[in-house]
Design a binder for these strands. Structure first.
Lengths: 412, 412
DNA sequence: CGAATTAGTTTTCAATCTGAACTATATGCG
DNA sequence: CGCATATAGTTCAGATTGAAAACTAATTCG
């Protein structure tokens, strides 16, 4: 018998606890408090505010803030005079002179944008281009060009880039920066040259799954403000997903959780590209919906518009196709909600466009298969659409800056 | 826009980082290293071993070990002479004079056992009794009696009880010690008097879900040694489950994840007690299997034996019932594995007994619905059977002792 | 028996937080 | 205007802690 295994948590042992680690932790705490305070009491926090928010003493906060200011992550934003008696405090905020880059490669376009540490999108460019079947090297080269454009713009605005995130629609290995398989791009086992994208950024570029990024974008910029726990379903060529639990993305043991597209929703259903059967994707993927609705071939966005027109016109085949997709989406969501104790569902990607028609079908199906688990008010349609993944990738990089400020602090 | 939300991790802010917290963390590290070392190099570690295992200096380890020894959690176990040159080190182990209590209330029995910190089950008693429909107070009183018996035995062996865990088959709220609903016991919204069970234990008693505990028992005493990520399916009256990810139980945002019994496996399936439709439980729950197999009513264990006999005899109805249950179990497992990126399945509870017949059906179904995700070698049958939940509850208490040794350390 | 080797302890030092005293800058009232 | 009061922020002594190095202890090898 061995109860001993893993009494500590399992992963690689954390660095031994030295006295200096306390400071690292406190730098993160102060930074997090600054980040949070702006939304909460709608005012830049002073050092005194931070002391009470973090539980640290004013002395410690002063010293920590000085270090963060030296490293350029935090800046003072003038005295905050609020009419109170006493010496006015100095407001602090995350520096708008440091930023991160969000990037996305998708089937029909590439895009890049710069977010400053305060969370404002300062620049953003999208380039429409067909990437399906293109060699990864040439797509990456085109993306590098786009990135250097937005980076140059940012530089003019005085923003120094610290790191970035890249979203790709496929199974990725974040640690090695490898795309294991991206069927819709026809890529397989490709190690991307991520360092070439942001050669000067100290934190480099991190590769992420597109659906996961969209779920994160939704978390930070969309319905994440309302829901803490939800299933995000992203309709693209396939059906991707992301699980947000306790306001964090659950990415599974190998970073590939959330494949809601391959939940089995109909045991006797048709064969799926994954070589399984009856997967959600065979009912709610783009091709499944378009062909069931009788939409003729064309570009994805054209077909989507076409579908919307027919739905508006009350076309029977289109309505039935959406109804069926919603029905099975509801089944997959019901299973997921039961399994993971989730209470909300957010529909993104192409489902955003179909929202008005598909959401009611999902609600009905949920009421049938998991009554009382997800209330109708907690079935939401994303408003971010195409930019969700970009925002998620950028936000992810931003988070990693905030989580490891010491790696940017100049030697003292 | 607010990227700021939750830059720190979301939950309640950890205690402010003082210098003393480093020591707390290091006490845990040393304790964890002692716990782990016994299984790994099969020898009690010395202070020097711990220094190299934790990355701390010998000086620090000496001081930390002294504190742990003072608090009674760790003890020296004589010089370890291994024939090597140099001064022999002193072996250290988790004290066998401190222990925790595992408890279980189930439909047909209650049980309690004492585990010492080393992970050895020192005492164990089960009392067969029908608890369905009994008032919680009287069941708890009977359990308290059983606990005091095992505690007295432990006391005679010189073991001091530090805390305990109680497993109950139903939805529980661990924080408040409330059973939200335990349909098979006919309990609903019951606040259990947990403190009465172990009045003298400094850490008290913590309430857990039975299926989750069984999954944990499996993790620490069973197949958890082979698998780090798996779905544990526990067949009882209903079908419960537990998700183990990275050698940790995933309990979801409100501690109620793992309800694999209510994954939808057949959209046109029969109504379920949860008021949904086509849930796994309607095909793989006890009643479903027994009635499909044509097993006449009786006690659960009698019917289980009866079923085993018929299966041995090659009875067609029994075989078909098991085949069907395995088929749908495989579908639910396929969906779960895809969704959460899991690669193994462990069958427990009454499925243990049916293992030889049902496991092959699960394997076939997995191969159909999620080829390549869960290899046949990673579909396992639990060997712990009925004691899994008790061991999981005890192990959980043991873990919480190891995770917060400072709460037991005498003031210095 | 002495050299070599490994275990564990003692000592000194640097990092860091706390708490209290102190300085700085505002408001409010006579 | 001037002074009491209040709040913000800084400085400095004190306590806790782990690292590094020197030191003591116990064993094996020749």
């Amino acid at each position: 018998m061995s109860l001993e295994k893993d009494a500590d948590g399992g992963g690689p042992r954390p660095a031994p606890g030295r006295v200096e680690d306390v400071r690292r932790g406190n730098l993160v705490r102060v930074l997090a408090a600054i980040a949070r305070a702006r939304t909460d009491p709608q005012r830049y926090p002073t050092r005194a505010d931070l002391a009470s928010l973090t539980g640290l003493t004013k002395a410690s906060v002063s010293s920590l803030v000085a270090e963060l200011a030296d490293s350029g992550l935090v800046m003072e934003s003038g005295a905050t005079r609020d009419g109170e008696r006493g010496r006015p405090g100095v407001g602090l905020e995350l520096s708008t002179r440091r930023g991160v880059v969000g990037m996305e490669i998708n089937v029909d376009y590439i895009s890049a944008g710069v977010l400053d540490l305060g969370g404002t999108l300062r620049t953003h460019r999208t380039l429409e281009c067909g990437n399906r079947g293109q060699p990864p090297g040439s797509v990456m080269a085109r993306l590098a060009g786009l990135v250097s454009e937005v980076a140059a713009e940012a530089s003019l605005a005085g923003i120094e880039i610290l790191g970035g995130g890249l979203a790709v629609p496929g199974l990725v290995d974040t640690a090695s920066g490898t795309v294991a398989s991206a069927p819709n791009l026809h890529w397989q086992g490709v190690a991307l040259e991520l360092d070439a994208l942001l050669p000067a950024a100290p934190l480099g570029t991190v590769l992420h799954n597109e659906a996961n990024c969209a779920a994160l974008g939704e978390l930070w910029y969309g319905h994440g403000l309302d829901f803490r726990d939800y299933l995000f379903v992203s309709g693209e060529v396939g059906v991707g997903g992301g699980l947000v639990i306790g306001s964090r993305l659950f990415s599974g043991p190998h970073g590939q959780a959330g494949e809601v597209g391959h939940v089995v929703v109909e045991p006797s259903g048709p064969a799926c590209s994954c070589s399984g059967r009856g997967c959600l994707e065979t009912f709610a993927g783009q091709e499944a919906i378009f062909s069931a609705a009788g939409i003729p071939p064309g570009t994805a966005s054209a077909r989507l518009s076409h579908l919307a027109e027919r739905l508006d016109a009350g076309d029977a085949a289109a309505t039935a196709a959406i109804e069926r997709a919603g029905h099975y989406l509801g089944i997959a969501a019901a299973s997921t909600a039961r399994l993971m104790n989730l209470s909300a569902v957010v529909l993104g990607g192409h489902f955003t466009r179909m929202g008005p028609w598909i959401a009611p079908a999902v609600v009905r199906s949920l009421a049938d298969y998991a009554p009382g688990v997800v209330s109708p008010a907690r079935v939401a349609v994303s408003e971010l659409g195409q930019s969700a993944a970009l925002l998620g990738a950028a936000g992810s990089a931003l988070r990693s800056v905030l989580a490891s400020p010491y790696s940017l602090t100049p030697a003292r």
